[in-house]
Amino acid sequence: MNTTSQELDQKQAVTALRRKDLLGIAELSPGEIELVLDTAEAMKEVGTRPIKKVPALRGKTVVNLFYEPSTRTRTSFEIAEKRLSADTLNIAIGTSSVVKGETLADTALNLEAMSPDMIVLRHASSGACHFLSRVCRSAIINAGDGMHEHPTQALLDAFTIRERKKRLAGLKIAIIGDLLHSRVLRSNIHLLTKLGANVWVCGPPTLIPADIRRFGVTATSAVEEAVHDADVIMLLRIQLERMEGAYFPSLREYFRVFGMTEARLQLARPDVMIMHPGPMNRGVEIASEVADGPYSVILDQVANGVAVRMAVLYLLAGGAEHEEAA
């Protein structure tokens, strides 16, 4: 954690992201997070206009470099970039071709020879964005790296919660599902604890990362305990493709023990919000009645993703080293 930037926060409101990259929530100060969320509010308004486009990033080139299939995140970034008038370039590289093809460093350097200003990277390896930021001059935006972080997802989750609840501090937020493999979890834990929420994480013991309590959260495998009086319930995707490790006996059994049903929902606060980063497995981590029910803000999350990503793109366009303001 960056204590110096946190100390700065206390002295004055943060008005700029003085950094080259967005690699994770871990390195952001609470003030920087608030700045992104505030800026996203302004950006959200842009999406309500007849002409949903502003010239802020005119002349900037953004490369969306996706090494993992992703419809939601990539589309969201692309819309955000276009709404800011950036030139965008989408590169989707199948993981299989990477094995025999060029290295990530070489791909990035080749791209960089074409002078993009930012690279939005989605990659299956944790730390791929850190690695790229050491190799590249371009700003790197983490669109999900392995099991590490997915910072814009956490920012849009926080934005969505703040929009409804007007605050994050003091809320009980239960995050339930495959904690072990989830980058969304890690980013959300960092963000929510930094902004003072009371975070509970819940899943089968086989899917709880080692030493999770050191993140400042309460961990449990009793879903009722996690859901009890929760203001927000955030469900994480059970990655069906990873179940070969037999982390639990069957999807049916997972749903029986951890699935979010209307009955379990009764334990939460009456104004509880149900969130899911998508894509959902209905009948595994969430019952359809809950996903489609009145507490669900899942589609709001998608809509807010564009605004949050616009904010990040805009704020990072300033770069890390700031000269005297003109």
Binding site: R186, A210, D211
Partner: peptide, 21 residues
């Protein structure tokens, strides 16, 4: 050990690296 790449503990958890206990 599985496909672990780092010691199973707080830092591997934090960095999203597969652990080796």
């Amino acid at each position: 050990k599985g496909d672990g790449v780092a010691h199973e503990g707080f830092h591997a958890s934090s960095l999203g690296l597969r652990g080796i206990p």
